[in-house]
């Protein structure tokens, strides 16, 4: 039967929490036996990542490697860590793969649900704030070792520029002006970005330094995957501009890496 009781509620997360808490098992962490510490438990969740975002003159580039690790093993070689959210934003996730993917999916549905019911897009600032609530609601699991940390970026139509937001485990939201990288190889990627990023760089420059930063992260961090020329697996790169969210074609990414390798 059609349930009409949630009229006027544009918060999909809240509706699910009330009507279908079973679908939010990991993000409703009070349900999970709080004494279990997953880090010490018998299984190891998939994790390990470098994801980053770089502001350039027309918007922002988001990128991530493709590897998920299971302890010291490679768990998955082709995982996606960047997800388009709406026409002008995308989310990247680092941490335990399962809850990460769930959070990205829920966040995307939330933003689209708001847009369709209200008839107008949720502002970039509004999206960034809502994501802070989602991270905060995962705190229980984070305490048990299943941390999820997103990096959020988008094109702000009002301010006419790309913007980047980073989060801490308790839901703190902080804005970065030029670039940021998170995950196990985040610090290595940030070092490269710090040296190579200049204000008002072009799209081509931005793609080049993003490829280089991910290369350096993979070089230093065992949990970050580099370009796999044999299997043809390359990092995913997205651009977010006034025109929308676009994935950089695999051939372009391959070319970026071939040029980078030629320079080494």
């Amino acid at each position: 039967m059609l349930d009409l009781s949630d009229y006027g509620n544009s918060d999909f997360f809240q509706i699910l929490k009330r009507r279908h808490p079973e679908l939010l098992a990991t993000l409703n962490s009070s349900d999970v036996a709080s004494s279990v510490n997953v880090a010490e438990a018998a299984f190891r969740p998939y994790e390990g990542t470098t994801v980053l975002a770089v502001v350039y003159d027309a918007g922002v580039v988001m990128a991530g490697d493709r590897q998920a690790t299971e302890g010291y093993q490679v768990g998955e070689r082709r995982i996606q860590k960047i997800y388009p959210v709406d026409r002008h934003s995308a989310i990247a996730v680092a941490g335990a793969a399962g809850p990460c993917i769930e959070m990205a999916k829920l966040f995307q549905v939330e933003v689209e649900f708001y847009e369709k019911t209200e008839g107008i897009s949720l502002s970039l600032e509004g999206q960034a704030n809502f994501l802070a609530h989602l991270v905060r609601s995962n705190l229980g699991l984070a305490m048990q070792g299943l941390i999820v940390l997103p990096l959020f970026a988008g094109y702000d139509l009002k301010r006419q520029r790309g913007r980047i937001f980073k989060y801490d485990a308790v839901g703190g939201r902080y804005e970065e002006d030029d670039y940021y990288a998170i995950g196990s190889g985040g610090k290595d990627a940030r070092t490269t970005l710090k040296k190579r990023h200049t204000p008002e760089i072009t799209r081509q420059n931005a793609l080049e330094i993003v490829a280089e930063a991910l290369w350096d992260a993979a070089d230093e961090d065992i949990a970050t995957g580099g370009p796999d020329l044999i299997r043809k697996i390359f990092p995913t790169l997205y651009t977010v501009t006034e025109e929308g969210v676009t994935e950089v074609p695999e051939a372009t990414v391959e070319e970026l890496y071939r040029n980078l390798i030629a320079r080494l």
């Binding site: 059609l2 009229y7 699910l16 279908h20």
Partner: peptide, 17 residues
Amino acid sequence: EILRVAGIRESEIKGFR
């Protein structure tokens, strides 16, 4: 209008599930 929003809601829940 109330049916429109209910339709979006039920669809999103089903698609999420």
